[in-house]
């Protein structure tokens, strides 16, 4: 996970890595496993989460109206 976490964090901090060929080459050069690379290349959020073993569902705060 740590390598993917670092990679995602670097993507978040550096949006120029996210465009077109820059993105593909960033993913390819990140040194990730094949499965991670594949889900990242197609920007598969659920696939990435499944691969990392994240929770299937997340609850969010709901403001109570009264």
């Amino acid at each position: 996970m740590s390598k993917i976490a670092q990679f995602l964090e670097s993507l978040g901090a550096s949006p120029n890595q996210l465009s077109g060929t820059n993105y593909a080459s960033s993913v390819e050069s990140a040194g990730l496993g094949v499965a991670s690379r594949d889900v990242l290349l197609v920007r598969d959020h659920d696939g990435l989460n499944g691969l990392l073993g994240g929770r299937a569902a997340m609850r969010r705060f709901v403001a109570v109206p009264d």
Binding site: M1, S2, A5, Q6, L8, E9, H45, L48, N49, L52, G53, G54, R55, A56, M58, R60, F61
Partner: peptide, 14 residues
Amino acid sequence: AAVSDPVVELWLQQ
């Protein structure tokens, strides 16, 4: 942690 995305939760754990 109360976050909105499971991947974010994993990131925080790092």
